[in-house]
Write a protein that binds this DNA or RNA. Structure first.
Length: 151
DNA sequence: GTTCTGACA
DNA sequence: TGTCAGAA
């Protein structure tokens, strides 16, 4: 884990903004795929995959990916949606094409809509699993009885 | 050591 | 998506 907080890529120096120490404060505006992966818990493969699918469009430095604040906001949404098992296609719809995802009421509206739909699906799944469980229990009891074992 | 692309599972 | 390979 090379925590290169040096002045690579999108690093920017803010005038006068210093903290405690004497070294000039460096605020990084862009991050490498490795850093983003660690921060959000995504694998490098997943991040490249999301890019292939058009969910994010990190800028490049040569052919190295650089993730901006906007990319991170999108990733945050992706993480939340993935957490409930939402399909990537739906996540892409929520995100929309623009790269600026901050404070977008329309986006929140889309996300709410998709989330409600997802809730329905999860509720149905839960019911289905309950049914399967009951069936399995019944079959097990039946088999045990047939084998002369205690229930 | 880190990241990239492409291919296969 | 994980994993592996070969290159930068």
């Amino acid at each position: 884990m090379t925590e290169d907080y040096g002045n690579r890529g999108g690093a920017v120096r803010l005038q006068g903004a210093t903290d405690m120490g004497s070294a000039p404060t460096t605020v990084r505006t862009h991050f490498t795929i490795g850093e983003i992966a660690r921060e959000f818990g995504f694998t490098l493969r997943a991040l490249r995959f999301y890019e292939e699918k058009g969910l994010i469009r990190p800028r490049r430095t040569g052919n190295r990916r650089l993730y901006s604040a906007a990319d991170r906001q999108r990733l945050e949404i992706i993480a939340k949606c993935k957490k409930v098992g939402m399909p990537l296609d739906d996540i892409r719809d929520i995100l929309g094409v623009g790269n600026d995802v901050a404070n977008d009421p329309a986006r929140s509206e889309r996300m709410l809509d998709k989330m409600l739909t997802r809730l329905d699906a999860l509720t149905e799944e839960k019911a289905r699993i309950h049914d399967y469980t009951q069936e399995a229990l019944l079959l097990i009891a039946d088999l045990k009885a047939k084998l002369g074992r205690a229930a």
